[in-house]
Each structure stands twice: as C-alpha cells, then as structure tokens.
Amino acid sequence: MTTMTDTQTSRVRSTAGTKGVTFAGVLRSEWIKLFSLMSTRVLLLLTLVAIVGVGALAVLIRFSFLDEMARQARDQGQTLTPEMMAQTFPPGSGFDLYNLPNAGLQIGILVLGSLAVLFISSEYATGMIRSTMNAVPRRTPAFVAKAILLAVISYVITTIAAVATFLIAMPVFQGLGLDLDWSTDGVLYSVFTGGLYVAGVALIGLSLGALLRNSAGGITVLVGLFFVVSIAASFMTFIPGDFWKYVPQYLPSDAGGRFLSIGHTDGVIDPWQGGMIFLGYVLLFLVPAMIVLKKRDV
C-alpha cells in the first residue's frame, strides 16, 4: 500500500500535463480503445481474410462456370472465344468482371458494420461510456472521433482486400484469354469506391449503436437494413405494374450497390445518384445519433 509521501508527486502539476482536451487527443484515445481490445484486433484481421476469401471463392465459381462452358463447347467441336465468354456477363446483371475487387464486400459490410455498432454499444453495456463522457464532456468530439476512426479503418481494410481480391482474379481470367487488368473500365473505380460503401455502413452501424445503446438490437437492425429488407424488396418486383420495379433501388443497400457499378442503364438511377442517396441514408442515421448522444443522460 502506498504511503502519503507517494501522493506528493501529484503536487507537481506538470506530471499530468496541462494541454487539456484536443481533438487529436480524443482521436488517439479512441484509437487506444479500439486496438486495446484483443477481440477487435482479431476481428479486423479475420475480416480482411474473409473479404479476400469470399472474393476468391467468387472468382473460383465464375472460373469453373466459364471452364465448364469452354469444355462443353470443345465437346461440340466449337471454340469459345473470350468475346463469347464476356457476353455471358451482360452489363448490369451484377456479374461484371470489373466488379471483382468487391466480390467479398458483403462480408465486410456484415463484420465492419457490426464492429461499428459494438464500438459504442459495448461502452453503454459496460458503463465505459460514463468514463468517456467524463473525459470529453462535450461528447460530440468523442462520437466524431469514433466515426472518423471507423470510416478510415473500414475504408483501408476494404480497399486492401479489394486489391488483394483483384490480384487473385486477374491471372485467372487472363488465363482464359479474357481482357482484364487494372486499366479495364471500372476496375479502379471498384477498388476505390467499395471502401466508401463499407465506411458508410460502419457509420450507420455506429449511429445505430448510439441510438439503441444495445449491441444485439443495433446489429439486428443493421443486418435487417442491409440484408433482409433488400431481399424482401426484391419480391416487390413481382407486384404487377412498373412502379414497384423502381422502388428497391432507393433502399440503402441497393442505392449503395448501384454506386459501385459504372455506366448508365435506362430506368435505373445512375451510380452517382446511388451514391448521393446512400450518403443521405448515412446522414439520416448519423445526425440524429449525434443529437441524441449530446442530449441524453448517460
């Protein structure tokens, strides 16, 4: 047990510093919080592996499909040209080759989105949020720091995974004689926009965590929003009449997905419009979360 003489050190004001709260300090604090948990470090590493893994699996599936087509063509004495192969992936069908970097994106959305929910909801669950609010009583800087950190980490991980996935995909399809490399239309666009989409999902996750203050609830709503609603909405297209065919594309998942593709299709929103709609959804969650966080008792 310490004696009174040890507390003498607390008299020296300089030992505790005098700078006060700075945003860089808050950002560093959130960084320490995120990476001082073993679960986060493991999760981020596994996310990277999983995105590339699922991407590689998607590459393998397409390769076997094309390989099978080529074999059948050979059996009938024909030759499958690369042009014919390319036509099996008509633009807008969701199987465009330029989109390969983002083949494992759904895993990234699921894991990084959930991590974002947990980043704040676990603070409510453990009571840590009160320590956070004590250190940063203005509250908003702590939330903004969390948001920046999550967005950047999501972007970096997704982009690294996209590059890795494409590095796996490129030689496979080049081997089949298809024209696919970094200069192919949409490849670089895919590589650099996939991370933006996942970062947006992470921001929605963080907002849900702050609004609901509950890990299970936040993750459930997030999964519902990005997976269940999208599937449910796809059934709308069976409703007679043209109107319902155009509704699903305004959902966050579909608008965000459209943002990752290139080119104009009649009757479908353009990629930039999809991006703006998705950004709108991000703000729709982020702004109320910040207001509620500032006002609510913790």
């Binding site: 030992t15 505790a16 510093g17 300090g25 001082s36 679960s39 453990t126 840590m128 320590s131 004590n134």
Partner: peptide
Amino acid sequence: DAKAVHTSRSAYNHLRAMAATHNIP
C-alpha cells in the same frame, strides 16, 4: 461508478485511453 470501465480492457489501457484525451503523458 467503479463499473465505468470496459470489462475486456486492462486497467493500464483504460487509464491510457482516458489520459490521451487530455494529452496526459
């Protein structure tokens, strides 16, 4: 509230995260 701590984080890292906000060494 002595429970205002993330249960999976070490005491050292908890204090380090708190200190970082104010640039406390």
